[in-house]
Design a binder for these strands. Structure first.
Lengths: 194, 194, 194, 194
DNA sequence: TCCTAAGCGAGACGGTACGTCCAGTCTTCGT
DNA sequence: ACGAAGACTGGACGTACCGTCTCGCTTAGGA
């Protein structure tokens, strides 16, 4: 029942080669130094083949990055704080991995330029991360660890924001001490009154 | 006693015209679409005249933006929460003003590219904002409103981060309700036990 | 009696469609602006189908043009000059017909690029034209109108060259007055002394 | 009194380097294989510098060729036939010199494509050649060698056309025997009756 | 009053990357 | 086994900016 368009189908090899080349070049030279020309050359592919799939460097890179970011299974450590920490560590590890950290600032700029890129990023790992943390926070409420009137969306922002700000604005390394401090400070604000 | 270099002095008119043109173009087209070529043309100035003063678009824009961002006198509303709110509102108003909001993402990218730009931004309004909030938080500790062992630097990140993240990553408008919710949630985490 | 072979009868249709499309596009856009891509699209045919039959644009166009150029029966007007004029008018009409005139310069370039194209053109209407004029000149010699020692091949060049040069090099319209003047001038040079 | 346009003047070195590179590449690879990219690279010049002066490959090449074609001083051998032969030999030497012969067919195509190129060529060596031959023919008329009612423009076409046609259409080498035969045949047609 | 130095607007310079187009070849499916 | 459709590699196209470099000119201070 699948409608099949005529003509030669797009090559999955080329597709993969382009994504691989993108990731490799980003790691080697950083986001800004990467050019479509170089990606095509590295992938052993004509430029038109790249443009046929991705209309901009940003969209291509967004998808390439999506490949790196792993999906985190929802944990159950017994406490809301422990569960949240798992997600926090997954997120902050992005700020330390050269493959993704070098990318983040360029991605932010690309999102501001293009609503398509912004949409792709938000529906990708941003949405996955938020969905995971949302679940463990709700579980914390259900268990009575967190106040019943907790504003979950706000909590997500207050958890994610500090490291994001610290890394991009202050240019400071995000270590585990900081991560734990953020979590404990925020969860204290959400905790149910004893 | 001032050593006076020979030759024609730099034109202050040109200087101002360049900064004005930069701001105008950023407002009109966004940070990324602005080119040095266009700035020079708009300012009615040769390109060399621009490069003689600023070696990169980022540095120029940083200075141009510095002109817009105002200095906030340290307030005293009677409560730490009230004082913090004053600073928070000054910061979040930047996310709503087209002149600065359109700029932020590009600036983040520029900071990642250039340590000079990063330094200029951090020592500019970032430092001023943090210094102000630092003062009111310390006053809150002194008054006994906040716990004595509060990690002030962490608190600054947790206050500033959420709106920054929300604006750049989620692309959502930062309204006053959100600002107040962040402040009250964070300060609850820092409050001294009854 | 019709053989019932499956999925084949397109062949001659495609062949004709391609030639028709070639001629139409040449008339519309001139030789150089025509692309194999456009020919295939206009003919409603895949590019491979075109390449399967003609390995280059030049060969295809050569054949297409061969269709237009008609064969001239050897005339007998009673005088060598009259006979030659018939052939000359056939030739110069090509310089006026948009279908062939727009083609000529491109064909010349293609002939220089490719010996195959050159061969095809020379053995086609060039040879036919020369053969015809050769005959009437020889008849003129036999009749005593022209000198016995006439260099016929040279005469062919001197007859054909002027209009060819005038059209391609000077970009001037070839009218019948010019044609008659060339013929009369040349034949005067070949005429037998009283 | 010469008005001087502002800004840095165009570099004459670059100008010459581009023309030299064009000529060298044409000799090495032929007209069609030459690319603007290669010309710029060979000249050690940016592509924009080429396009700033010549908007198309054809115009550039036309000018480059103009440099090769030499100006012929009007001869006086004592007879119209001798004078004409001097010009004919200058012209036909172009068909033998690889630097110009490889170029001619492409130039013809370019002239058909672009009125600017056509104009440049016609006003260049075409006009110079015709002017020269025109003079010696008129002198022949004045001396009584040629008929008083000679159509000089027609004579120019009949002289120039045969070799042009023979070279481009028949792809045959133009030797001196042919040149002399054309001249003597044509001048016989123009000669005054004894 | 002239001289020297540096600034000025203008725009050309050598480069790099862009995104488009076409050439000629190579699959895929449908008939 | 052929046909159309269309993707493939490859490479030139002409444009836009980059940051630097002349030009002829202005604007100052010091000789």
């Amino acid at each position: 029942m699948t409608t099949r368009s005529p003509g030669r189908p797009r090559s999955e090899e080329a597709h993969a080669a382009i994504l691989d080349a993108s990731i490799a070049l980003i790691r080697e030279m950083g986001y800004d130094a990467v050019t479509m020309e170089a990606i095509a050359a590295r992938a052993g592919v004509g430029k038109a083949t790249v443009y046929r799939r991705w209309t901009s460097k940003e969209l291509l890179v967004t998808e390439a990055v999506g490949r790196i970011v792993s999906t985190i299974p929802v944990p159950d450590t017994g406490s809301a704080e422990g569960d949240v920490l798992v997600f926090m560590r997954a997120a902050t590890s992005m700020y330390r991995d050269p493959a993704t950290s070098a990318l983040l600032s360029g991605l932010v700029a690309a999102m501001a330029r293009s609503e398509r890129v912004a949409g792709a990023v938000r529906m990708g790992f941003v949405a996955r991360w938020r969905e995971g943390v949302r679940l463990v926070l709700r579980r914390g409420v259900a268990r009575g660890e967190l106040r019943a009137d907790v504003d979950v969306e706000l909590a997500l922002d207050v958890l994610a924001g500090p490291a994001f700000y610290r890394y991009l604005m202050l240019g400071v390394v995000i270590d585990d001490r900081f991560t734990r401090a953020v979590v404990s400070t925020v969860l204290r604000g959400l905790a149910s009154a004893r």
